[in-house]
Design a protein around this nucleic acid. Structure first.
Length: 196
DNA sequence: ACGCGGATGGCCT
DNA sequence: GGCCATCCGCGTA
């Protein structure tokens, strides 16, 4: 028997983004499609705290692009970046606030052959999902998922996992941003991530 | 191992 | 016109 899937409820996400970012380590991100299930355990995240956080997309206000970042807790916010890549966030705090957690890395679990097919340039499984644009490609996540619920009401969901001890969590500044560059809002599950 | 620059397109000034 | 919450390939070591 396979244990039932326990989806993270909306209340899980109705907290500050840094708290949720830390708590998402070890959680399974799961995409269920016609051709099968693809999933992985979250090993790296970043928190974007809200309109007062200069590095946050919500700092520029609610536009068509950032619309779903202001949605209810547990919403998927998916955006297009550098003309090529999709990035997946989980919205945190209350409806209308504008905070989110960027999923930066997962450890592949189910559907390895499908991930490899969607990431033909990855020569080794170690680099299949070790970046925000890589994991969305491997999972088949794109603009269609923008605004979906991650709490069990859609094909894309977050499933409860075993707790990750503090001793295995690394906290660092965020990557690839130009504002608030030293805020310690990046969380890495060191035992399962190649990233420093 | 590490650093650099090109790819590529939507959105804001 | 410039800026991106990135990735990849190629150069040097």
């Amino acid at each position: 028997m396979v244990p039932p899937l326990v989806f993270l409820p909306p209340e899980f996400f109705d907290r500050e983004a840094d708290v949720v970012a830390r708590a998402l380590l070890g959680v399974t991100l799961r995409h269920e499609r016609d051709d099968g299930v693809v999933s992985g355990r979250i090993v790296e995240t970043e928190a974007y705290l809200g309109p007062h956080d200069p590095a946050s997309h919500s700092a520029a206000g609610r536009t068509a692009r950032t619309w779903h970042m202001f949605g209810p807790p547990g919403t998927a916010y998916v955006y297009f970046i550098y003309g090529m890549h999709w990035c997946l966030n989980a919205v945190t705090r209350e409806d209308g606030y504008g905070a989110a957690v960027l999923i930066r890395g997962i450890e592949p679990m189910e559907g390895l052959p499908r991930m490899r097919a969607r990431r033909p340039k990855a020569r080794r499984d170690r680099v299949l999902c070790d970046g925000p644009g890589k994991l969305t490609a491997a999972l088949g996540v794109d603009r269609r998922c923008d605004g979906w619920s991650l709490t069990g009401g859609s094909a894309l969901s977050l499933v409860q996992g075993d707790a990750v001890p503090d001793a295995e969590v690394l906290v660092t500044p965020r990557i690839g941003i130009s504002k608030a560059v030293d805020w310690p809002l990046r969380f890495v599950w060191s035992a399962h991530s190649r990233a420093v």
